[in-house]
Amino acid sequence: MKVRELICDPLDIWVCRAELEEFSGQRLDASVMAALKAKLGTGLPYWPSRDWLTGGAIIARERIAVIPEGDEWVALWHPESWPSGVVSTDGPAMTGPTALIAAMRCYVASKYGDEVPA
């Protein structure tokens, strides 16, 4: 499936997968569970493409710029001149109907490329 088409639950699932990638193959012991809770927070449901508390933290940490463009939002991965004005980017750029959707698509694309398994 194309990342630019992900929305709602499928997008949030892929964001979660990207967030948890570093824990792949590890045994879920107390230290890993503590690290998971610290990374994802304790707020449920986990909706980074719909909740600024969760998605905003990812945007800030990953240095994703989000810019309004007409009726859509454009998200740029690690823009060259962050935070004052955007000139270019070395990574993916995605669009979406909201800033959070565009940014989370950009984050997923930065980890997996333009397509993910359906």
Rank of each mutant, 00 (worst) to 15 (best):
K2M: 15
V3W: 03
E5F: 14
I7K: 12
I7Q: 10
D9S: 13
D9G: 02
P10H: 06
P10R: 02
P10D: 12
P10L: 07
L11Y: 01
D12P: 02
I13R: 06
W14D: 01
W14S: 04
V15C: 03
C16S: 15
C16F: 04
C16L: 15
A18T: 03
E22F: 03
F23P: 07
F23I: 10
S24N: 09
G25A: 07
A30D: 13
A30E: 15
A30G: 13
S31R: 14
V32M: 05
V32I: 14
M33E: 10
A34W: 01
A34F: 08
A35E: 08
L36G: 01
K37I: 08
K39M: 10
G41I: 07
T42D: 14
G43R: 05
L44P: 11
W47M: 12
W47D: 02
W47N: 06
P48E: 04
P48F: 01
P48H: 04
S49L: 01
W52D: 11
W52K: 07
L53N: 15
G56T: 06
I58L: 09
I58R: 00
I59M: 05
A60P: 04
A65I: 06
A65V: 05
V66G: 02
I67A: 09
P68H: 13
E69A: 10
E69S: 08
D71Q: 09
L76C: 10
L76F: 01
L76H: 04
W77S: 10
H78R: 12
H78K: 11
P79A: 05
E80C: 05
E80Q: 11
W82H: 15
P83F: 09
S84D: 15
G85E: 11
V86I: 12
V86G: 04
T95Q: 11
T95N: 07
G96R: 01
A102F: 01
M104Q: 02
M104D: 00
M104F: 03
C106N: 03
Y107G: 03
V108L: 07
A109E: 02
S110E: 06
K111V: 15
G113T: 08
V116P: 01
P117M: 14
A118V: 10
A118N: 08
